[in-house]
């Protein structure tokens, strides 16, 4: 995937695209979600039948659509970064607006999903599965919300550097979802 020279040593430490602090945040977030997902998988070993039964209440198709929505949004954000490097500010803003709109669509679908659970009387304490389901997807949804705000901010101050930092956060949200979606919704 890459044709750049490999350079070892300390220079690589500062070579990460964007801001080092954003990467510290991204790594921390990935560790948290990673630990949460592994804890979920471990708890699932103790009660596979109960987890499968609980998972039957989820709508995998809606979540699948949400996956496509989010990776498409990530793609638009990546295009926005390219456009900003080319200095096309209007195009940057258009692409970011589209990316953020898809983020809102994601949240709307997610909201419908939560409303459905509430209507069924399902909450945090219904089953261990739902404790993790609400915790992990809820934390993730909060990050989507934060990401939309960040995209709006970097769209306002649309320098290439800001875009690199802001879109990195958005891609992290994407990355978490592509791991969370199959583990929570699909495995049975």
């Amino acid at each position: 995937m890459s044709d750049s020279d490999e350079s070892g040593g300390e220079s690589d430490f500062y070579a990460l695209p964007g801001d080092l602090m954003m990467w510290i945040l991204i790594i921390s977030e990935l560790l948290v979600f990673g630990a949460g997902l592994l804890a979920f998988m471990a708890m699932r070993v103790t009660d596979p039948a109960g987890f499968t039964a609980a998972q039957g209440h989820l709508n995998a198709t809606a979540a699948g659509i949400n996956t496509v929505v989010l990776v498409t949004s990530g793609w638009l954000a990546a295009l926005a970064l390219k456009a900003s490097e080319a200095g096309q500010v209007a195009r940057v803003r258009l692409l970011l607006a589209a990316a953020a709109s898809l983020g809102m669509l994601f949240l709307w679908i997610k909201g419908m999903e939560y409303a459905g659970k509430a209507a069924e009387g399902i909450n945090f304490e219904t089953h261990t599965f739902f404790t993790f389901y609400f915790l992990l997807t809820g934390f993730h949804a909060l990050h989507v919300l934060a990401g939309i705000v960040i995209l709006a901010l970097v769209g306002w101050k649309a320098s290439p550097r800001n875009l690199e930092v802001g879109t990195a956060f958005w891609h992290m949200v994407d990355l978490v979802w592509v791991l969370l979606f199959p583990i929570i919704y699909l495995l049975r």
């Binding site: 948290v32 630990a35 949460g36 945090f124 915790l135």
Partner: peptide, 13 residues
């Protein structure tokens, strides 16, 4: 009870 998982994960970090 969800605090048990939040506490586990974040305090390990």
């Amino acid at each position: 009870p969800y605090w048990q998982w939040i506490g586990n994960i974040f305090s390990s970090l």
